[in-house]
Every structure is written in C-alpha cells, then in structure tokens.
Design a protein around this nucleic acid. Structure first.
Length: 694
RNA sequence: GGGCUCGUAGCUCAGUUGGUUAGAGCGUUACAUUGACAUUGUAAAGGUCGAAGAUUCGAGUUCUUCCGAGCCCACCA
C-alpha cells in the first residue's frame, strides 16, 4: 500500500515505522547526543516544553542530515513531591490516604496511578514532532536508575560525604517533608512587627523590648540577642530575662549580626526556627527547643496555646500579652515570607533528622571545570552565574519524608547499620525516607546511559553534546549535574548548555495555573499545525532572552508561518505538478537569473549552516524564510515564467534543497512535499545536508 | 545588600566579531491580482536605537554615569 503523508500523525508514524529516530551504537558515523530534560510525570506540557522540544528536535534533525549518528534520548522524572501530592488528591477523592493504605499498598497503587498518567501524557510528549529514540526512554525509578542512584549514594557514603542528623531545615507543612533552600521561594507579605517586653530576671519591673513578627515562636526562645555596640543594651549583656508564659530565664547575648537600627535592636533567639539564631545558638552553646511541630502547629512547649496553627496562635498570644501589658507597640512591616516553591505553603524552619551530603569539594571541582570552559554556556554569562552559586553552596539535604522515590538504601538492625540496595536479610529495617528527586536527576546524564556499568552507550554518547533547560532550574539541576558528573567521571556532563528564555505574558508575569494566563501548545497546534507552531517558537528561542507573548501574538505568528507553509506547498505544486512538456533534462545555470539564484541559494546554505552550528535557530529561520519566500518564490519563479521549460531542473533543485534546509524546523511539511519527488530517499530524514564546494 | 539581563517602528522582537540609506512579523495606507497561492504581489508611511558623556575616521553595537523595567541570589528579625 502506498504510504500516506497527508497528516502529521501519519508522517510521524511513518518515521517511527522506518526506525529513523534510533541511534546506532555500532555506527561508523560520528556521534551527536542530546539529552531531553525529563518532564515531570505529572506535569502538563506547556509552552516551555514545546520550546525545548522544538529546539532539541531542530538540532537533532540538523545533525542527522549532516551525517551524525544522533541520540536524542527521552525520559520521565518521577518528581517526588509533585507526584505524591497529585496522587494524594486522587486518593482523597476515593476517601483514601497514605495512612489508611500503609506504605506497601500505597506504593502498589502509586505505580498503577503512574501508569495511568503516563499513558495519558506520553502521547502528547511526541506532539512537537520530537524525533526521539523512544526505545531508550528512561524513567527515573527504572531498575537501572535504581542501581545508578545506589552507586551514587554508596560512593558518597564510603567517602565520608554523607551524614545524618538533626539539623535546621526548611519544612513544608503541607507536603510533610523537608525541602532544600533552592526549593523555597520568597513572597512579599504585609505583617505586624510586635514589640514585646521581656522582664529582666533580677528586676521584674524593668524589661528589654524585643521586636518580632512571630511571637508564636517565643516558647522556644533560649536567649535574647543584641548588638555588642548598642549603647542601649551594652550593660545588659549577660543578664537574664524571663520569657513570658514560658516562665524560663534566658540570657541576653551579644552578636554583631544584629542590626541596631531595626526594630528595637533586640531579637529573641530560637535556634530551632531561624537560621541566624541557629548559628548564634551553636556559637553560644545554647539549647535547642522546638515550638513548632512538623504539622505546622505549636508544640506542647506552648502550654495553653499548644495545638494551634501558627497564625491562630499569633493572635491569641498577642491578646494574652496585651492583657499582661507586655506589648509596647505594633508596627506594620513588609517582609519576605518563605514558601514552598511547589505548593506555595509558607515553610517552617525547624529541626529534623535528615540526611546530608557534603558538597563543598565537589562544588569547588565543578567550578574549576567551568573555569576551564569545558561547558559552553548559552548565553555565556552562565559561566559566571553558576560558579557564584557553587562558591556559596552548603550541604545538600537529600532526604525527603515521602514514599514516592528512591528509598534511602540504609538498613538497620539493633545497633548495626548497612548500606545496601536490597535487604541484607531477616530482621533488617530500611530507612523510612526517600532521596530528593534531584539526587537522581543530578545523575541523569549518566544513569540514562547505564552507568555505573561500562556500557557501550555510555562510552559512546557521554559526555552529551547538547543539553537544554529553563533557567529556573539552573541550580537545582544544571549545577548539580555538572558537579556530580565531574565527581564520578572527571568529565563535564554536556559540552553545550543551552538556556532558553522564559515566555511570559504581556505584563511580564510568568505563566501559571493560578493566574490562568497560560497558552496551551495544543491550542496552537490544532489551529496552525505543528510546523507553524514550531516556527513561531523559534522566533523566541534566543538563548537567555525572555519573551512577552499572548494568545494574539502567537496567533499572528502561527498564521504567518501557516501561510509560509502554504506558500511552500504552492511552490511545489507549481514545480512538481504543473511540470511543462518541454522540461529540460539537464541541470544547468546558464541564464543570468539562474546564476543569481544559485548564488543566493549558496549564500543561504552557508549562513543557515553557520547559524545552526552556532545554535542561532532564530537567525537560521529568518534567513530561510527570506530566501524561500522573497527570493525563490517572489523573484525567481516570477521571472522564469517566460522560460519555464529550461528552468525546470533548476526549480526542482532549489525546491529540494530548500526542503532539506527547512526540515529541521518544519519536519512534517518538508517530508510531505519531499515525497512528491520522483527521485528521492525513503525519507527526507535520510537526505544529506548540502555542503558547499569551495 | 550582591549579581545578571533588558530598554530599537503602534505591538512582539531580530540585529554575530563596531563599517554603507537600522531590519522582520503583525498592524496601518495606496495600488494590483484570482494567478502555482484557504490569497498573494508591488509600494508607502512609521525609529534623535532610554538619557548624557567617553573612545574611534566611524557606535544600536565598546566604556562610564544616570533613569526606567524585569529576573536571580542573600539570614533582614
């Protein structure tokens, strides 16, 4: 039966059937490898993904045409916290929960849920025409990733880089887990700054006034801190004060970090709930007490206020303090409140038993690698941004109190402890926590190729030639991949790192579900087709440049590139379907106009190739658009109408090469038209990128 | 507080290493056309390239300062 090229879907099936996306480890060709950032299992595909996929695919197709053995490797991230909260919501609807099911049953259900969502979204992951090697698709919880993650953990552990203990961490009361600083964001919020009188121990009539926005943490106060240079309090240093309600005497200590000008110049100190206080507490060897529990409610320490949520407690405590005349005044204040990046719940700093990796040295080494230009960053200023972060890095909290993820491979029995992927035997109990999602994502460039096994894939395709990312995960993901790859292989994970910009709305705001300002890629595809949507996105693909867009703007561009497609289709109809009787049988550029257009074609080939080599897709698209529409179609074709026959082969030549040049960007249309040539390869994907003879 | 980026036509954006009259798409105006064209073609209008200095034979492009917008980082109670 004749192959049908009438729709994008059919063309895509044809490519898959012909196995044109597969990399070949045994190929004699040079390799070019591109790693697709694994979308979150639960994540919907948005314009950012569409952009990434379009860019990746253009580069991959270009390299294939140039004769490389291309690996474009897809995968999916299990996305611990995000998946777990989505799954919990679904369980909630069935009146079930984590705690009702228990870990084993819950995990069984979770895997079924995973399959369900995966089926739903996996089709759309191909939607931009992505020519990925689907047979090699990897999921971060696959056995081979489990092995890699275990190797990573064990290696750090044996090297003494991993430790566990009670430390202050950012805690999300909603997700019920510790999170990393990089997973916390700040929101500006109006609050009250309370000035509270703490009576002096030796003389209850005298007091020191502390300023705080969080009176509810006062039950954990272990000191009051002042600046040693502050004349108001100099003489009080070393004295004791009584914490209201807690009836506890705590010392007044000195620390230079206290801002004399802020508030009253005196700060309450509770090491369990504030990073500064944590450090001060350590320096002054103070006790650590917890006033707020992991459920976000006040602990028993709070006496009559125990069990209240923080904001409820705040009001009640204020009332109680007022009654005792211990409030001096209240001011309005605007400050930053830390919230969980995913669920936007205000986070709590608190003490929790967590696992950490000492990353200081790894970070230093990574900085060196970046300084040696082992990774080419686009835009280049990331060469500076990433080391800045790496230089100030602190230990990485890798444990999460979740069930969905790589369970920490540590087993306990009595006083023994063993690091092992499988149970060491009877009577051993595994650590309850799982590893941070980024612990496995950071290993992605390696685990996808079968590391730590010395696979042929790993030998051939690592380091990756090309990686792309949104700027927002530059620390969470990109910096860590560099750090981890360098630690294990002494090599960079990828040679080119492409940061695309963020697409925003016309006010410059991010697209988000809550704002409802998103533009569905599917909407554009349905309306203008995949190729036109891709072309629209390439115009915004300048590395590191954000773009302000709206539905209207994308409709304009979509329409414009749809018309461009129509133009090309009509060129082909003119050339291939309305072939003249007296068509020439030999290709020759004799006429002035022929020479002129050949010259222009060659210039186009040269500049487009140059732009693609430099990953300037937006410029390549621009040049091609101009050439095909305004030189080839508007000028040359018009001129040849008076001598149609002798130009037939020139026209065919121009069309064929235009299709090849456009194929990385408009894969479907170019394949569809290419198939109309009598002489052709099985697919345009098997064509050769034109090389100019010098 | 530190760092990064941007400010070019009404709108959204290009503009490699400084080099002729500063570009595209959409929008606007005029004319043409049903032709290979679910339209298209030919033109036109529209910019002191945020401001001021500096370097240079020459600056949208380099440097300095300022103004404006945004992003990232940081322990501001």
């Amino acid at each position: 039966m004749k192959q049908d090229f009438s729709s994008e879907e059919k063309i895509y099936q044809f490519w898959e059937k012909e196995n044109l996306f597969a990399a070949d480890v045994n190929s004699k060709k040079k390799k070019y490898s591109l790693l697709i950032p694994p979308p979150n299992l639960t994540g919907e595909l948005h314009l950012g993904h569409a952009m990434q996929h379009s860019i990746l695919d253009a580069v991959a197709r270009f390299k294939r045409l140039q004769g490389f053995d291309v690996l474009l490797l897809p995968g999916v991230d299990h996305a611990g916290i995000q998946f777990e909260s989505t799954f919990e919501k679904s369980l909630h609807k069935q009146n079930l929960s984590k705690y009702k099911l228990g870990r084993e049953e819950w995990l069984k259900e979770a895997w079924e849920f995973k399959e369900e969502i995966y089926k739903k979204v996996s089709i759309t992951w191909r939607f931009m025409g992505l020519s990925a090697d689907w047979n090699r698709e990897v999921f971060t919880l696959d056995p081979k990733c489990q092995k890699a993650v275990f190797e990573e953990f064990k290696t750090y552990y044996d090297a003494g880089l991993i430790y566990k203990g009670p430390y202050i961490v950012q805690w999300c009361p909603k997700d019920q887990t510790a999170i990393e600083d990089v997973e916390v964001e700040y929101q500006e919020k109006e609050d009250k700054l309370y000035y509270i009188k703490y009576p002096l121990a030796k003389d209850n009539d005298k007091h020191i006034v502390i300023a705080t926005v969080r009176p509810e943490t006062m039950f954990a106060d272990v000191a009051v801190t002042v600046n040693p240079e502050d004349p108001r309090y100099k003489d009080l240093i070393g004295e004791k004060v009584v914490v209201p309600f807690a009836d506890r005497e705590v010392p007044i200590i000195a620390d230079e970090s206290v801002d004399i000008k802020f508030g009253s110049g005196a700060v309450k100190c509770d090491p369990a709930h504030d990073l500064d206080d944590y450090r001060r507490g350590k320096e002054h060897k103070l006790e650590i007490m917890s006033a707020i529990g992991k459920d976000g409610k006040l602990t028993d320490l709070a006496g009559e206020f125990a069990g209240l949520k923080t904001h409820e407690a705040r009001e009640k405590i204020f009332d109680a303090l007022s009654k005792k005349a211990l409030i001096e005044k209240v001011e309005d204040i605007v400050h930053n409140v830390s919230v969980c990046e995913r669920c936007k719940t205000p986070t709590e700093l608190l003490i929790s038993d967590e696992w950490f990796v000492k990353v200081g040295n790894m970070a230093k080494e990574a900085t060196k690698l970046i300084a040696e230009d082992k990774v080419k960053f686009l835009p280049p200023n990331y060469k500076k941004i990433l080391p800045d972060w790496l230089a100030n890095i602190h230990d990485w909290c890798i444990s999460r109190s979740l069930w969905w993820g790589h369970r920490i491979p540590v087993w306990y029995r009595d006083n023994e402890k063993v690091v092992s992927l499988e149970s060491p035997g009877e009577g051993w109990v595994q650590d309850e926590q799982v590893l941070d999602t980024w612990f496995s994502s950071g290993l992605w460039p390696m685990s996808t190729l079968g590391w730590p096994e010395k696979t042929v894939e790993f030998e051939r395709y690592f380091p990756w030639d090309f990686e792309i990312s949104a700027p927002e995960i530059k620390y969470l993901w990109i910096a860590r991949m560099i750090m981890i790859s360098n630690y294990f292989t002494r090599k960079e994970p990828f040679q080119t790192m492409f940061f695309h910009g963020m697409l925003r709305d016309l006010e410059g705001r991010k697209f988000s579900k809550s704002l409802g300002n998103g533009i569905e890629p599917q909407y554009l595809i349905d309306k203008w087709g995949v190729d036109a949507t891709r072309m629209s996105l390439y115009t915004y693909s300048v590395p590191g440049r954000d773009g302000r867009v709206s539905k209207n703007i994308f409709d304009e561009r979509g329409k414009n590139f749809r018309n461009f497609g129509t133009k090309i289709r009509n060129i082909s109809r003119f050339i291939l379907e309305l072939k003249p009787e007296d068509a020439a049988t030999e290709l020759s550029f004799v006429h002035e106009d022929d020479k002129d257009i050949e010259d222009k074609l060659n210039k186009t080939i040269a500049t487009v190739t140059g732009h693609l080599e430099k990953l300037e897709l937006h410029l390549a698209v621009d040049v091609l658009y101009e050439f095909v529409w305004h030189e080839f179609a508007d000028v040359y074709i018009e001129k040849t109408k008076t001598r149609r026959g002798e130009t037939q082969l020139v026209l065919e030549h121009l069309l064929r090469l235009s299709l090849i040049l456009l194929h990385p960007f408009m894969p479907f249309l170019t394949e569809e038209i290419y198939q109309k040539f009598d002489e052709r390869e099985r697919s345009i994907m098997l064509e050769q990128w034109p090389v100019l003879k010098v």
